[in-house]
């Protein structure tokens, strides 16, 4: 099968839909897991799905830059960042403000909301973004929810990187890939950010005992 046929077949195939489903499910798994390590592995799967979607887009548009970006995503987001995060795990249990089942219900509501509203926003367009954009918006909301409801600083960092994945997905699906320089810059930014945040998480845990950020409000004024 040559490239032209592939480009013809891909949009009609369910490959992107499947990968987008994997993306969303892994994000939901990160929101629902009781173990910190489980969350991190969910993030890894999320990143793998993202890299594969980017690869599909690269094949679809025959763009070498997007393919390179996809490989970088695979290396950094699925490899390096989860490793850095896993190194910071001191406590196995996830501490939440909202009970996990309730949280999962809220996440489901957010996903429904994202799908319904995004469909209204963009109509039914048979391109790749038709399935990717609602997934990206839903993942954004779920990741924000994770950041809001978790007590540990580490889990908030995890929510942040998840949020970044969702935004990356939106960028890839909306624009068929950003310029390579931009993507590399974003990845480098993210890597430096996670490294720094890891440092701070360590410090916060040393200071506050358990890394419970709800005690940070004593810093106010």
């Amino acid at each position: 099968m040559n490239t032209l046929e592939l480009a013809d077949w891909l949009p009609r195939s369910n490959a992107v839909n499947l990968l987008a489903g994997l993306f969303l499910l892994s994000a939901l798994r990160a929101a629902g897991s009781r173990r910190v390590r489980g969350c991190i592995s969910a993030y890894r799967w999320n990143s793998v799905a993202l890299a594969l979607i980017a690869l599909v887009v690269a094949l679809d548009t025959a763009s070498r830059a997007v393919a390179l970006a996809a490989l970088l995503v695979l290396a950094i987001k699925a490899g390096l960042i989860p490793m850095l995060l896993a190194r910071q795990v001191k406590q196995q249990e996830v501490l939440t403000r909202v009970a996990l089942p309730t949280g999962m219900l809220v996440c489901g509501a957010l996903v429904v909301l994202a799908f319904s509203q995004t469909r209204v926003l963009f109509g039914s367009d048979p391109s790749i973004l038709a399935s990717c954009l609602p997934v990206s918006v839903a993942t954004t909301l779920v990741a924000l929810f994770v950041m809001v409801t978790r007590r540990q600083a580490l889990m908030q960092v995890l929510g942040l990187v998840l949020l970044e994945n969702a935004i990356f997905l939106a960028a890839v699906s909306l624009t068929q890939g950003l310029p390579l320089v931009v993507e590399m810059g974003i990845l480098l930014d993210l890597l430096a950010g996670v490294a720094l945040l890891g440092l701070f998480v360590g410090r916060i845990e040393d200071t506050l005992g358990e890394g419970d950020v709800s005690r940070l409000d004593s810093l106010r004024e």
Binding site: L113, Q117, L144, V148, V213, L216, D217, S218, R220
Partner: peptide
């Protein structure tokens, strides 16, 4: 509103996003 709690600030963000999705079309 300015509680100094990170969670609440993030929650404001989430609420704004949802509100924009629902009403900001």
């Amino acid at each position: 509103l300015q509680s100094g709690q990170l969670h609440l600030y993030l929650a404001y963000l989430l609420i704004t996003l949802v509100a924009l999705l629902v009403w900001g079309r």
